[in-house]
Every structure is written in structure tokens, then in C-alpha cells.
Nucleic acid binder design. Structure first.
Lengths: 192, 192
DNA sequence: CACAATCATTGTCATAAGACAAAGTTTTAA
DNA sequence: TTAAAACTTTGTCTTATGACAATGATTGTG
């Protein structure tokens, strides 16, 4: 846990220009938590009130579509931040689930505390703004990839740009991230 | 043009809590421009250095995929803001084209002036942050829609949520926004 | 206005991907 | 440890969509 806190501090240090004492104070506003695989952190139908930092493990953000299939929006591996973004922003009922895809060690801060911190430490807001920018760039890239590429090319794209996903994440979840069924992914992998 | 400037001011007023005199000063940093249909504002291969407000008409952001097909990322109708976001953020060479999809009246501000304005009028930054949040929410929604829905349902979704696009925008461009060929879109429309 | 260019529609055919099912494998939990 | 559950792979069949082409409509331009 000591190590975990210093990980969080490092993350804040690298994404803001806050001084060490402020970084320490801010890090302490986050609550450390160990969560088992498949723990549900945010649920469809509820309003998202938390922001997460992943120190170890992996969280997964997904929706369930009309046909009952999971559609993965995002994986957050260690040293990244995540939340059920759309609901976190709009404060409307979420369509998303956020779960631990592996046993994970995470830090949680309430949305209220998160935004209040911006008042005390304005520089901290830049972390959120960078997160939003990065999240947008990633999301827009996926739009282009899904619209412009066939399954096999989407697979190759992930192999090249997010190879961790293929080694760590279950095929089923990767398929739901690539916008295909698990049987299709399996056949495409066999073709490579 | 008088009217156009007041439109820009109105937009700033509604998306920040700036006072009137600051709003006027900021609006004057934007340059008014009339552009013909198909005018290229930002080009693939270049770094995006501008931010746009659409007073009248419509801008379209798109990429060209491997096969040479256009893939539309976003339409910006009147009273909305747009740029080649990914390049604007990363300041790397853009993959995107930004063009006038109709004869349009727009306001342009350079990226430098835009960010400098944040220093003089910190509250103005909230407009950019809201833009980022909104852009993310929209983009993420599209990811879910494309991954979870078939063509016919994507079409119905746009009919319900962005009906303007179907009345104003060419079928070809709408198809490239929906992730299908124009012939497929045409057949789906016939099926409705 | 008239010609050219672009776009929209529709048809045929080919193909990528989904649905479903069966068998083998791995993970989970009692 | 062992049984149950979940996941992965592979096969067959079906279907949605793409590729390509022809025709007709619309738009832009000299």
C-alpha cells in the first residue's frame, strides 16, 4: 500500500506541475482499495460519483447492448485513471458498468472531493483535462478504426498498438472491445 | 456579420460565466470568415493550429481510410465549435480533413491566441473543457453504437437523435458517418 | 443554358461476420 | 479434489454488407 500511494503520487506528479507537498495532500484524498476479479464498481442505471486510479490490475468499462451482448468501451491497466465517464460528466443515469477485470488495487475519490480539490489546488484540474483530452483522442481513434477497418485489420491494429490487451485480457472481453463475437475473433486469430 | 458576432457572443455567454465586457473582448479575437462549400480548412498531414465556431452552415471532419474511403468523425452545424481535435490536442500531423460541407460563416481563432486567452480570462477555459467533455461523450456513444448495432439500427438511431443530418447532409457523407457504403445506406433507407 | 461531374438508387454477386452448436479447455468454488 | 461453470476453438449455415456496375437525378460551371 505504501508502494501504491507512491504510484499514485508519481502519476499526479507526471500529469500536473504541483509541488510535492500538494501532491501528498491530494493523494491522501484518494482511498486505497483492493478489489477481487469481477467486483462491480459502477453499475448501469446509477449515477457515477467516483473517479478511479488503477495501481495494479485492470478495470473494464462496458455496456450491454440491445441484444444482450457486452460492448467494451475501455480497459484501464495499471497507472491509469478511469471512471464511467459519460455519467460522471453528465450526472445522468449510467449506461455503463465498471468492473475489475482482474484482482486489482485501486484508488477511489468521490466526484465531489475531486472537483472540490480543483478549488484548493487549481493545477490539479489539469490532470482531469488531460484525461478528457486523452480519452477523446482514444475514443475518436476507435471510431475511425471501426468505421474504416475490417475485423482482421482491427485485430492487427490492437496487436500493434495495445498488445497488452491480447496477452492479459480474456478473448471474450477483447472481442467485445473489437466489435466482434468471440467466435469471429477466434477464427481471425487462427488466420493470422 | 453583426449578427454573426452576436451569435458567437451568445455561445460564449451560454458556455462560460464571463461578464459581458470580457465576452466582447474575447469574441473580437475570433476572425469572421465566409467560406464556400468544399473549402478545405484543415488538411491531413498538417498540424492543426485553429479552432472554429460555426455561425452558419456546416463543417465536416473526416479521414481517408486505407482503402481510400472517407470516414466522417463529426459534423458541426451552426452554433457549435469544432477543430481537427486530435491534432489540435497532440500538435502532431493530422490524419483529419476539416472542410465546409455547405457554404458557411465561421469564426476562427488561432490555437496560440485561444490558449493565451485562458491566461487573461481563466473562465474562458471552461468553454474548451466543456467542448472536450461533450466531444468525448459523443465519441464514446458512437463507439457503443457502432459496436453494438447493425446498419439499420444505426440509421434509426441517427434519425432519432441527429435528424438534422439526414435532411441537410448528403447521403454519401451520412453513410461515411454511419460506417457503411452509400449503396448500403440507400438500400437501408428503402427498407424503412 | 448545356455539358460535365458528382451523387443517389437499384441490381447482382461475393464475402465477412453472426448465430448456433459441439467439443475441448480453463477457471471457480464447494 | 472434483464437479460445475465459464471460456475458447472449430464447424456449418445464414445473413448483412461490401464491391462493382448501370441508370437516373442533381449540382456545379463555363
Amino acid at each position: 500500500m505504501e508502494k501504491a500511494y507512491s504510484q499514485l503520487q508519481k502519476f499526479i506528479r507526471e500529469n500536473t506541475s504541483l509541488c510535492e507537498s500538494d501532491i501528498e495532500k491530494i493523494a491522501l484524498l484518494f482511498k486505497f482499495k483492493k478489489v477481487k476479479r469481477n467486483t462491480m464498481l459502477e453499475k448501469e442505471g446509477q449515477v457515477c460519483k467516483h473517479f478511479y486510479f488503477v495501481a495494479k490490475g485492470c478495470l473494464r468499462l462496458y455496456e450491454i447492448d440491445k441484444k444482450g451482448n457486452e460492448v467494451t468501451g475501455k480497459f484501464a491497466l495499471e497507472n491509469s485513471i478511469i471512471t464511467a465517464v459519460t455519467s460522471f460528466i453528465t450526472q445522468k443515469k449510467s449506461m455503463d458498468f465498471l468492473t475489475a477485470h482482474e484482482h486489482s488495487e485501486i484508488f477511489v475519490i468521490s466526484r465531489d472531493d475531486f472537483f472540490k480539490t480543483f478549488e484548493t489546488f487549481p493545477e490539479f484540474a489539469s490532470l482531469y483535462h488531460k484525461f478528457m483530452e486523452w480519452a477523446f483522442v482514444h475514443s475518436q481513434m476507435r471510431v475511425y478504426i471501426f468505421l474504416g477497418m475490417e475485423g482482421i485489420d482491427r485485430l492487427k491494429w490492437v496487436m500493434e498498438h495495445e498488445p497488452d490487451l491480447l496477452t492479459r485480457i480474456s478473448s471474450k472481453a477483447v472481442a467485445s472491445y473489437l466489435g466482434m463475437t468471440n467466435s469471429t475473433l477466434s477464427k481471425l486469430k487462427a488466420k493470422l
